[in-house]
Computed example of a mutant assay.
Amino acid sequence: MQIQIIAAPDAGLVAAATRRRLRTPVLVARCAGWALLAVTVLVQLATGVLEPGLLAGGVALAVLVPMTLLNGTARRSLRRGRLTTYEISDGGVARSDEVGRHAYAWRAFRSVETLSGQLMFGLRGGRWMRVPTTGLSPAQVEEVLGAAAAQGLRVDRGSLGGRAQVVR
């Protein structure tokens, strides 16, 4: 198998990948913020005194921190955006642009997830490589997912349907 994709960054795809990648820290910040807002309400009911520090902290955690995380990460990804060549082969996945080339063997990945219009390859250590599927047929996407599964990666077909599978 040898698949090559040449693509410029797409703001919509970068935003979707960023939301997926930061799902856990954003959820933690939102939950902490809502908990702090609940404490603020309880303090108000119990004492009759509004605590502006608790209110501001709750709003910051529930709204401002998630917005900053998501928008900042997406903007950084787009700012670095250059025309990029992605190569998927039996040996692994490579990404190159005019600045450099990064190639990863299949064993460097732990999972692959499908998002609308892209594949998210999870590297060990919590990093991700986003590969757009622009111009690929559904059969080619399935070929990539099959190659990943054959290498023992967890494959989550997400928006393509089907169930996550682990092949060992």
Rank of each mutant, 00 (worst) to 15 (best):
M67F: 07
E51N: 15
G48D: 10
R110E: 07
A94L: 03
L119V: 06
D97V: 01
P52F: 14
V93Y: 06
Q118P: 02
G57D: 05
A62Q: 08
L123R: 13
R80K: 14
W106S: 03
A108P: 00
D97P: 00
S77I: 09
R79F: 08
V112T: 04
S111A: 15
L123S: 04
Q118G: 01
V112S: 02
L54S: 06
P66Y: 13
M120Y: 05
G92E: 10
L70M: 14
G48M: 10
T68R: 15
Y86K: 05
V59A: 04
P52D: 10
N71A: 05
T73I: 02
M67R: 13
L55K: 03
R75K: 13
A62G: 10
L50V: 15
G122L: 05
R101F: 01
M67W: 14
S111H: 09
L83M: 09
T68L: 15
F121C: 04
T73F: 06
A105Y: 03
N71K: 07
A103H: 12
Q118F: 06
I88P: 00
A62K: 08
G57W: 04
Y86T: 02
G100E: 03
R80V: 06
L70P: 04
G117D: 14
G91V: 05
A108G: 04
R75Q: 11
A105P: 01
V112W: 01
L115G: 06
L55G: 01
V93R: 02
L69V: 08
E51H: 13
G72T: 11
T84G: 07
G48N: 11
G57Q: 02
A56Y: 12
R101H: 05
W106G: 01
R95W: 02
L78W: 12
M67S: 06
A94Q: 06
S89G: 10
T85W: 04
A94V: 02
R82W: 05
S77T: 08
Y104W: 15
R101Q: 10
V65N: 04
R82V: 07
A103N: 09
M120K: 03
R76Q: 15
P66E: 13
G92V: 09
G100T: 02
T114Y: 10
V59S: 00
L55D: 01
S111R: 12
N71C: 00
V93C: 06
R80F: 10
T84R: 08
G57K: 03
E113K: 12
A56G: 12
L123I: 09
V59R: 00
F109P: 01
E98I: 05
G72R: 11
V93M: 07
G100L: 01
